[in-house]
Amino acid sequence: MIIEKPAAAGTLESCDAQVIVEPGNGGVELELDSKVIHQFGRQIRAVILDTLCRLDVTDAKVTVKDMGALDCTIRARVEAAVYRSAGQTDQIPWEKLADEK
């Protein structure tokens, strides 16, 4: 998918994550800040990159502020931000998203 405009999903509530995606500079650039960076930073990074990969996002700047969210939440927030940035707010391929988990 092509990131056309900046978009955000999620909140800064405890157990949530705020994801901002913006058009990139020719690759995926990830900036992660997390309350649990020591214990789960590696895993959160992997989940974000994996979700972007499944959505065929290859060119984006992604900024994530994680407040201790579980993987399912992080995945959902990344997906929402990406679809919003591509201007797709209906006709979301829910079944495909569900299958890919």
Binding site: H38, F40, G41
Partner: peptide, 10 residues
């Protein structure tokens, strides 16, 4: 299973 296995704090 819910959180993943935590890495050690440095």
């Amino acid at each position: 299973g819910i959180t993943g296995r935590p890495d050690p704090i440095p």
